[in-house]
Simulated assay, not measured.
Amino acid sequence: MTSTAHYPSSVANVLGILGNERRVLLLNYLFLFGYEQDIDVRHLARVIGSVENGTSPREVTSQDYESVYNGLIQNHLPKLAKYDIIDYDDRAKIVTVTPRIEEYLILIVVARMID
């Protein structure tokens, strides 16, 4: 779990967080869970892989699953944890949503309205 939060200090940092479609998918899905609920990274990889490939989670190929899983643990989850949007336990591969996710979902909704 993260011990110190680093808050984005500029619009560029916020756009860096939200400028990746996989992270936007991840944020939207994580928002469906309650705060303080643990979510297994393997589950997230299956769901995100299914959305990206237009299949059900059970139909995600092992290659697609591994690609999403590795991207999540190496890049996306640490980045979201750095800004206290989630808590991420790298050893247990568990994600916990924080209330800060709401700030980013508001930005996603506004961006979609002007897009």
Rank of each mutant, 00 (worst) to 15 (best):
V68R: 00
D89F: 02
Q37R: 15
E66L: 12
G16E: 08
I85S: 02
V109Y: 10
V68A: 05
D87M: 11
V14Y: 10
I114A: 06
I114Q: 09
Y83T: 01
I114G: 01
R23N: 02
V11C: 02
Y65K: 06
V60E: 01
V24E: 06
D40C: 03
E52Y: 04
H76V: 04
S67V: 07
P57R: 04
L30R: 01
S67T: 13
R112E: 12
P8Q: 10
V110N: 08
A111G: 12
Y69W: 08
Y88W: 07
K82P: 00
V68W: 00
I85T: 07
I73Q: 03
L32S: 15
F33V: 08
L26T: 02
Y69F: 15
Q74K: 15
H76D: 15
V14T: 13
I17C: 04
Y88M: 06
I101K: 01
Y83E: 03
K79G: 06
Y69L: 08
R42Q: 13
E21P: 02
R100P: 00
Y104C: 04
V60P: 00
G49T: 09
Y7S: 09
L77E: 03
V68Y: 01
I108R: 04
T4G: 07
I106C: 04
I17L: 14
E103Y: 13
F33C: 10
A45V: 07
P57D: 07
D38Q: 15
V110Q: 10
V51Y: 11
Y83A: 05
V51C: 07
D40L: 05
I39R: 06
Y35W: 10
R22A: 09
R23V: 04
L15Y: 06
V14D: 03
I108M: 04
Y69H: 12
L27M: 15
P8W: 10
T61L: 07
D64P: 02
N13V: 14
R23W: 03
Y104R: 03
L15E: 09
Q63R: 12
L32D: 14
E59C: 04
R42L: 10
L30W: 00
V11G: 00
R112A: 09
T98K: 12
Y69D: 02
A45R: 01
L107G: 03
V109A: 11
E103D: 14
V41S: 06
T98Q: 09
M113N: 09
L105D: 03
N70D: 11
I85L: 09
I108F: 05
L18S: 01
V14Q: 05
G16P: 00
G54K: 09
V41N: 05
S3N: 09
Y29D: 10
H43T: 14
